[in-house]
Simulated scan of single mutants.
Amino acid sequence: MQFGIFTVGDVTSDPTTKTVPTEAERIKAMVTIAEKAEEVGLDVFASGEHHNRPFVPSSPTTMLGYIAARTSRIILSTATTLITTNDPVKIAEDYAMLQHLADGRVDLMMGRGNTGPVYPWFGKDIRQGIPLAVENYQLLRRLWREDVVDWEGRFRTPLESFTSTPRPLDGVPPFVWHGSIRSPEIAEQAAYYGDGFFANHIFWPTNHFQRLIDLYRRRFEHYGHGSADQAIVGLGGQVFMRKRSQDAVAEFRPYFDNAPVYGNGPSLEEFTEGTPLTVGSPQEVIDKTLTFREKFGDYQRQLFLMDHAGLPLKTVLEQLDLLGEEVVPVLRAEFDRLRPAHVPEAPTHAGLRAAATGTLEEGTDLVEAAR
């Protein structure tokens, strides 16, 4: 089981002090947060991709490459790579390059984004969002798996005898998650290829995400990749902790009300009741996160949103200390205890490489292979 954090990279005023970080301060804070995540023993740091204010991570590979040089263990991922508005050729080359720089500590999450104006900014039509996602990803897979590609599709110029460079590290493409908060077509796409499906379950209702994940699991089995409970599932969530629950609620409330992700809507209490948001003690975070397995089955990756809504960097780093010291060790042990032997761990580059070359010894867990 992998545990980590993801950032949306918002530049938001602190509602308690009215201070607003500069773009440079926010970008450097994300780097500091990634370094801290590795320090406290988390497995994954993931960055969103946005091209509109109030968000700043418009170039995830640039930031993740810089973080790769400053870390040694943590997996670097995207919380969204815009498969609809980015050229698949550029994605193939950028992330293969990042793979080499990070010694394989790279995967990525494909998504369509949640901001309509981005499409025309990049010369695309939002009404073609799903067909773009399907066609572009089909090309991306071929670019990573075939040395020479001839291609003709609907949405980009044809390719003739094209080779993307560099080639994926060790001949193993980065593992891909397909992220969605609403689209069954994306769950179907993930299942078809045997990729991971990430339900960014930070909004409600839970039963919507249960339906998406159930669809993905059933179709994963239908396409012959394994049994439904062996499908590779990731979940999002968000937490804010203090030693005492009432302190956490009092401190976080103004930030929740101010949040660009979900502020100005339902109350904090309504949101915590209907979504994965947990505002309380570390034990409450443990208890609620363990219920995700009951709702969604055994899964492979849990990412938390922790650095948004204007929270000061100092506060976020304190949150990471609590997460790494008091929450994740308990969750890791409990999820590992409950996971049946036939349910796989999350893929890693080393595990995928071993499987591809036939060097994985019988009975060896992919996580062990990655160590």
Score class of each variant (00 low, 15 high):
residue 3 F to W: 03
residue 15 P to M: 09
residue 18 K to E: 12
residue 20 V to R: 14
residue 26 R to W: 02
residue 26 R to T: 13
residue 30 M to S: 07
residue 33 I to V: 15
residue 36 K to H: 02
residue 37 A to D: 08
residue 39 E to F: 02
residue 41 G to H: 05
residue 44 V to F: 01
residue 44 V to K: 03
residue 48 G to T: 13
residue 54 P to Q: 03
residue 64 L to R: 04
residue 64 L to K: 04
residue 64 L to N: 01
residue 68 A to F: 09
residue 73 R to I: 00
residue 74 I to P: 04
residue 78 T to R: 11
residue 83 I to W: 11
residue 90 K to N: 06
residue 107 D to N: 15
residue 108 L to I: 10
residue 116 G to M: 14
residue 126 I to W: 02
residue 139 L to F: 10
residue 144 W to P: 00
residue 152 E to N: 11
residue 154 R to L: 04
residue 173 P to F: 04
residue 180 S to T: 15
residue 187 A to V: 02
residue 188 E to Q: 14
residue 189 Q to K: 03
residue 190 A to F: 11
residue 197 F to K: 03
residue 199 A to G: 12
residue 201 H to W: 06
residue 203 F to Q: 11
residue 204 W to V: 07
residue 209 F to Y: 11
residue 211 R to V: 14
residue 224 G to R: 12
residue 228 A to G: 09
residue 232 I to T: 08
residue 254 P to G: 05
residue 259 A to S: 15
residue 264 N to A: 11
residue 273 E to M: 05
residue 273 E to K: 07
residue 275 T to F: 04
residue 278 T to M: 12
residue 290 L to F: 11
residue 297 G to V: 13
residue 297 G to L: 05
residue 298 D to E: 13
residue 299 Y to A: 09
residue 301 R to I: 13
residue 306 M to S: 01
residue 308 H to E: 15
residue 316 V to K: 10
residue 317 L to V: 13
residue 318 E to G: 04
residue 325 E to R: 14
residue 338 L to W: 05
residue 340 P to L: 08
residue 343 V to L: 05
residue 354 A to Q: 09
residue 362 E to R: 13
residue 365 D to R: 15
